Simulated assay, not measured.
Amino acid sequence: MPALEFKNVSCRFPVPGGIYTATENVSFSIGDGEFVSVVGPTGCGKSTILNAAAGLLKPADGEVLVYGKPLQGLNRRAGYMFQAESLMPWATALENVTMSLTFRGEDPKHARELGMSWLARVGLEKFPDRYPHELSGGMRKRVAMAQTLIADPDILLMDESFSALDIQTRQLMEDELLAIWQEKKKAVLFITHDLDEAIAMSDRVVVFSAGPASHPIGDFPITLDRPRNVAEIRMTPAFNECHAAIWNVLRDEVLKSYQQHRAAI
């Protein structure tokens, strides 16, 4: 049974002069423990699909299934790691990490112990009392990752979570995420603009068409050996073969999206 399944999902939004169809008849699934990335041109509805998976957006047509059951309201079995900063500025690193446990009414001592263990797992055990403004961008992303994973979600939703980081920090974060995923084997739906990142991280890469009415136009299994080092795997012939096959499908959609944006200016 898939952990997450989209069945003919269409999402529409009112805009001046009519209705905009962001996605149309989107159907694909993520198996339990599977790491799936979605790539596509800017504006192709990738984040829209992620919000539908989180239960933050109700599709106009179709349905989202979570372990075989139609999603109603928020997806309580998912953790969401946003692209933008999601830490509370008035809370310390440890308080941010344990916030979901606090809201659940967990024992404070147990929450602190678990929070410290997760800070240690992301290399921040020496900084539990630092506030977000006292941490670097990479450190804040590590706190956000621990904040998401401490709740032990069955499904991890990630929206270009590392896109704002420099390349070295980004690769470190990617390796840390893969190490945790390799241990926990959660279902992951990973949204990214970076095809290299998608291939290096994933079991499958789903390619979306240019919008409007975006939909999957390719589904590529990534058979590269695990565990992976994201910097080293990119230099292998097998990686380049995957990249060429996916880019052959994605290239025309990127050009189409670019031409549409230019025509709209």
Results as ranks from 00 to 15, higher is better:
131 Y>A: 06
45 G>I: 07
256 K>N: 09
47 S>V: 10
48 T>K: 04
40 G>A: 06
96 N>R: 11
59 P>V: 02
162 F>T: 09
258 Y>D: 11
5 E>F: 06
51 N>G: 02
20 Y>R: 12
1 M>E: 13
214 S>Q: 11
203 D>A: 12
142 R>Q: 08
37 S>E: 07
44 C>W: 03
265 I>K: 14
206 V>G: 07
48 T>C: 03
159 D>M: 08
167 I>Y: 06
34 E>S: 04
38 V>W: 01
159 D>R: 10
160 E>N: 04
51 N>S: 08
53 A>R: 01
115 G>T: 08
169 T>R: 01
130 R>T: 07
187 A>D: 01
129 D>A: 11
168 Q>Y: 07
26 V>A: 04
28 F>L: 02
239 F>S: 11
80 Y>P: 07
181 W>Y: 01
192 T>G: 04
207 V>I: 14
113 E>W: 03
183 E>P: 03
200 A>N: 07
132 P>G: 10
64 V>W: 01
83 Q>F: 06
231 A>W: 14
159 D>E: 06
19 I>L: 12
42 T>S: 15
260 Q>I: 11
22 A>G: 01
48 T>F: 00
134 E>K: 11
119 L>T: 13
176 E>H: 02
84 A>W: 13
15 V>P: 00
99 M>D: 10
128 P>G: 11
220 F>N: 07
115 G>N: 03
65 L>N: 10
6 F>Y: 03
98 T>Y: 04
111 A>M: 12
100 S>K: 14
189 L>D: 00
19 I>H: 04
256 K>T: 12
118 W>Q: 09
129 D>L: 11
133 H>S: 10
226 R>I: 03
124 L>C: 12
141 K>S: 08
15 V>C: 03
152 D>P: 09
15 V>N: 02
149 L>N: 06
10 S>M: 06
